[in-house]
Simulated scan of single mutants.
Amino acid sequence: MASVEKIAVVQEAPAATVQDLFRSLTDHWRTSLRLAGVLAEDHGLVDRACRAGYLRSLASGKRFPMFQDLGPSSTACHLDGGGVLTAADAVRADIARGCDLVVLSKFGKLEAGGGGLRGAFDAALEAGVPVLTSVGRGFMPAWEAFAAPHFVALPADAGRIEQWWADVRPSP
């Protein structure tokens, strides 16, 4: 059998679809795996231009804000890089405690610039732990510069992701 890359990136799907898929998969895996990472959640505020909300830890359930609420009349969106860095620190600590799989909501604007969850990605790669993430089309060049050729691109399909996990999961 050919070697399978330990990093899987979901592409070509809306962010909400990917986060719902990741949430469903991690809920299923939670009983049999030690998970580390964060998933994006909506902020639930009405009439906001900014869709960024929170990152929720898969290990502790803690929520980290990733937006600055500029109010309902604002047309701007401001990511809170500090909240995302705090989430990345928590994920790095979870990886250091031991995990089977790291799921990171996405590699986006902050990560492309070297910030955001980039430290969590680095920690997972250094630990040799499989990583599941997503990346939008606009950030593919930065993703490829960061991770190529050590990743496999997957569609937003639970069966394909489950097959990837079965292929990279360490033997008991």
Rank of each mutant, 00 (worst) to 15 (best):
A16R: 06
G82N: 12
T75D: 13
A52W: 03
L45Y: 08
G37W: 01
D94P: 00
A52V: 06
P141L: 12
E41R: 15
Q163I: 00
A127E: 05
R97D: 14
M140E: 13
I161W: 01
A158E: 15
D27E: 15
G114Y: 08
I7D: 03
E41N: 09
E162S: 05
A153Q: 11
D69N: 15
L132I: 05
V131G: 06
E5M: 10
G98P: 01
A124K: 05
G128D: 13
S60G: 09
G44E: 11
M1T: 12
E5R: 15
L35N: 07
G98Q: 13
L35W: 05
W143H: 00
L70D: 05
L33T: 04
Q19C: 00
V103G: 02
A156M: 09
R30A: 15
R51D: 15
S171R: 04
V135T: 11
A147G: 09
G98I: 13
L104N: 00
T75A: 14
D47L: 13
V129S: 08
G82E: 14
F139V: 00
P170I: 05
L55N: 03
H43M: 12
R63G: 09
T75M: 13
E5A: 15
D122T: 12
G119C: 03
V4R: 03
A59R: 15
L25A: 01
A142T: 05
M140I: 11
A158N: 00
L21F: 05
E162Q: 10
A8F: 07
V38C: 12
A158Y: 03
C50K: 07
G108H: 06
I161A: 03
V84R: 00
